[in-house]
Design a protein around this nucleic acid. Structure first.
Lengths: 189, 189
DNA sequence: TACACTAGAGAACGAGCGTTCTCGGCGCAA
DNA sequence: TTGCGCCGAGAACGCTCGTTCTCTAGTGTA
């Protein structure tokens, strides 16, 4: 039953991610991460020399999941316009998840953005990457990038609203608004 | 040079608000609030029996400022459609403020929403109030409430985006999108 | 068997924080 | 003037947390 170093890292990151996301980063101690990951403190600190490094790894992992989920939502759709709107279906499924508690990056930014430049940078990069993705989809659909920016605002707002009001239908509202914006930019279907 | 109890409270709340907003709530200790407010710890705890109470007072004060700013932005505008869009002008001015660091309620929610039901509730109430305000403006302009929800999503998204990307023009993007949505709901001007 | 090495469990350390307590001085009533 | 109560300053307390250290048991090798 050997285990590679990579598997240990992944287990730690997964455990930390679940805890940080559910309760907030500062509310979770390294001891708790250790327990949840089933790993010794020594090992934990061998993998991540500081809590900040662990947080950055968690954010990196979350970014990959996000990118994968987004790609999967658009995969198989022929119509570029459909691919553009698929973002909101992806969001809706996420909002309905019991563990949903808003965008982990936004939460981390609010909590640590002011004190940790590294965390702030990671959050910025993630959001920029989302902007780029959706701008690319907009261009592929025949619109210009500003449509992407506008849809991104809707997606961000939906995440915040769904998290705070606890209403998953924010995704549907956003999607309806997105329909209007897309139609205005590209002409009705 | 006497000073009323109310003035002391206000001074404490103002100092705490500036510190909490700039650096995060958990990153600021009561000692620092005391120093910034120029008040003794005893007095501080006489006014606010716990840090959570102080946080709630700060959120309440921020809510009042927000409502006042919003009302002021719409004041004097005759056209209800203009009043609806004035939200985004208000946002833009705020985003250009040097101290802008996103929505304080969203930040507080990310930091404490999972551990403090009282804070989570205050944030929820604030956002609900904003939804109600903008829905009322939408109805006054002749649209139905769902237009308000959609514009609220844009406003939320603009706040997040402006905070993280540091780009105040998120307000302008949101306003342009709002123009399209309003025109679609009410017909071109 | 003896030895060197590793790794896990958790104690320990030092700092920071929320909250409370103590002390000393000042104002005020008699 | 004397006693009394209030209030500010900040020390103290108890707890938590990030990080490091110690001790011990187990393993592989000669």
């Amino acid at each position: 039953m050997t285990e590679t170093v990579g598997e240990t890292r992944e287990r730690i990151v997964a455990a930390a991610d679940a805890l940080f996301y559910a309760r907030g980063i500062q509310a979770v101690g390294m001891d708790e991460v250790r327990t949840a990951a089933g790993v010794s403190l020594k090992r934990l600190y061998a993998e991540f020399p500081s809590k900040e490094q662990l947080v950055l790894a968690v954010l990196a992992s979350r970014h990959q999941q996000w990118e994968g989920g987004l790609a999967q939502a658009a995969a198989g759709l022929e119509d570029p316009r459909q691919r553009l709107l698929a973002v909101f279906d992806f969001l809706e499924a996420w909002f309905r998840d019991d563990t949903f508690r808003g965008c982990g990056f936004v939460n981390a930014f609010g909590e640590l953005g002011a004190t940790s430049p590294a965390v702030a940078g990671a959050v910025r990069e993630h959001k920029q990457s989302f902007q780029d993705d959706i701008a690319r989809l907009a261009v592929e659909a025949g619109a210009d990038e500003s449509l992407g920016s506008q849809l991104a605002l809707l997606a961000e707002g939906a995440q915040t609203t769904a998290a705070i009001a606890g209403r998953a239908d924010a995704a549907e509202q956003a999607r309806r608004a997105a329909d209007v914006l897309v139609a205005a930019a590209l002409g009705p279907r």
